[in-house]
Amino acid sequence: MLTILDKYILKRYLITFSVMILLFIPIGIMAHLAEQIGKMQANEAPLDEILIYFGNFTIYIGSLLFPIFLFLSVIFFTSKLASNTEIVAILSSGVSYSRFLRPYIIGASIIATLMFFMGMFIVPNASKGFNEFKYKYLKKGKQDRVTNNIFTQLNANDFIYVSSFDPARQIGYNFTFERFNDKNELDFKISAANIRYVDKDSMYRLTTYKKRQLINDTAMVETKRRLDTVFSFQIGDLTPVSYAAETKNIFELNRFITDQRLKGASNINAYVLVKYKRWALPITAFILTIIAVAVSSVKRRGGMGINLAFGIIVAFVFVFFDKVFGTLAEQSGFSPLMAVLIPNTIFGILAVVLLQKAKR
């Protein structure tokens, strides 16, 4: 059962967090509108699509900034409690520091639950609308797909590869198609300088075509300058959009990752990283809450300004670590799980150290 102390701190926690969201999100919207309004007008974006876009923008950006807003909110209102010597009075009355932390943990649980369900089910849909509008009107003509070193497994026996792909012209370069038999032996291999989808004929055109097939241990080679043929895959299936993982809820994302792993997608780490970050978001909320309480619950000579300055520095360092390890996972063989665990582990240790110091 919640006591008067719990209700008092929890109320301040949730109100401050809500006010910070309501204050800063509109500022972000206006700044973004001022920056992009010229591109929207130049590309003739319809008003209804613009309104939907900013609705998606609010959810998308809000979800990214939730941990930072949470962190700064706790520092802000806890610093006020400390400056008014309310915390001294609470602890002097016999309340232990661990007991004092309870309403903060309850508040963090509420926010973490909200962040979890939004990240798993609401934000993906907003991300889809946000990114589709961005590449349609704000980054018109810019690439939104993975276009290099594309390797795809179509089924248990068929594999395709292109060194690069141009979605605008529907052309893949250095195309290879390999089919293996049930004994995992190469049945035949088709290669071409490029593959183009001819929409009006609903077929593929291969340039500098070459087919090598083994028949009774004899290699049969067929070459043509050009060959029109059909395949079971769609040309667009070669290159999922770079933000594909962000647009799927947790169940769709799990299926998508399994499918891309079976296909041997080269950028599978980027998809797995998105999944792990969603699961880690609630943990981040607890870690940042504990750090914020430990830092701001002590009355300092510089007052709230010192605490807020420290909070902003910690927030930027956390974002820096998150981005650095995220980039390592996306662009190298670094483990996506470690990319998520390392920043949270470092700041988790920092939270424990600061908490022990605050208790003393």
Rank of each mutant, 00 (worst) to 15 (best):
F175Y: 15
S242T: 03
E252R: 09
V95Y: 08
M120D: 12
Q170K: 12
Y173R: 02
L47Y: 10
I291R: 01
G38Q: 07
I150N: 05
I160F: 04
G303R: 04
A192R: 13
F165N: 03
N184E: 14
V241E: 12
L33P: 12
L33R: 08
I312F: 06
Y135F: 14
S335L: 06
F251D: 14
L328P: 07
I190M: 05
I68H: 06
K142Q: 09
K277L: 02
S96I: 03
I75Y: 02
P26W: 01
T289G: 01
F133P: 07
F159S: 12
Y53H: 15
I111E: 10
I190E: 04
M338Y: 15
V298E: 01
P167Y: 06
T78D: 02
M30R: 04
M338Q: 13
K323F: 12
L2W: 01
I349F: 10
M220I: 15
K359P: 14
F316A: 03
I190T: 10
K224E: 15
A156C: 01
L14F: 03
I87W: 10
G119K: 05
P240G: 08
P167Q: 12
F116E: 06
I27F: 14
L354A: 11
L5A: 05
I313Q: 12
F256A: 01
E330Y: 08
H32T: 14
Y135V: 02
I21Y: 03
F54C: 09
K80A: 13
I160L: 10
G62Q: 05
E246Q: 12
L154A: 05
A270W: 06
N267F: 05
Y271I: 03
Y209M: 07
L14R: 02
Y271E: 10
P124H: 08
I37N: 12
Y173C: 04
I52T: 12
V146R: 13
I105K: 02
L281M: 14
I25D: 07
L308N: 07
R255K: 14
Q260Y: 12
E49L: 15
S93I: 01
I235N: 09
I87P: 11
F116I: 02
M120I: 07
I37M: 11
K142E: 11
I346R: 09
D187P: 00
Y60Q: 13
F325D: 06
R205V: 06
N184M: 08
F334S: 05
I250A: 05
P240E: 09
K142R: 08
L51G: 00
D166C: 04
V19I: 15
K139T: 07
R255H: 09
K323Y: 14
T113K: 01
V295H: 04
F57S: 05
Y97L: 06
A265G: 08
L206V: 02
S332D: 09
T284I: 14
Y137F: 14
Q170M: 06
N344H: 06
N43S: 10
L70D: 04
G348Q: 04
S297Q: 07
F233P: 04
V274L: 00
E185C: 00
I105L: 15
R196L: 11
M40T: 07
L65T: 13
A265D: 15
L70F: 07
L350M: 10
V146F: 15
G107S: 00
G333W: 07
F310L: 14
L273T: 07
F310Y: 08
P103C: 09
P167R: 10
F325Y: 09
I283K: 00
S232Y: 01
R179E: 15
G94A: 01
I52Q: 10
I15K: 11
F334R: 00
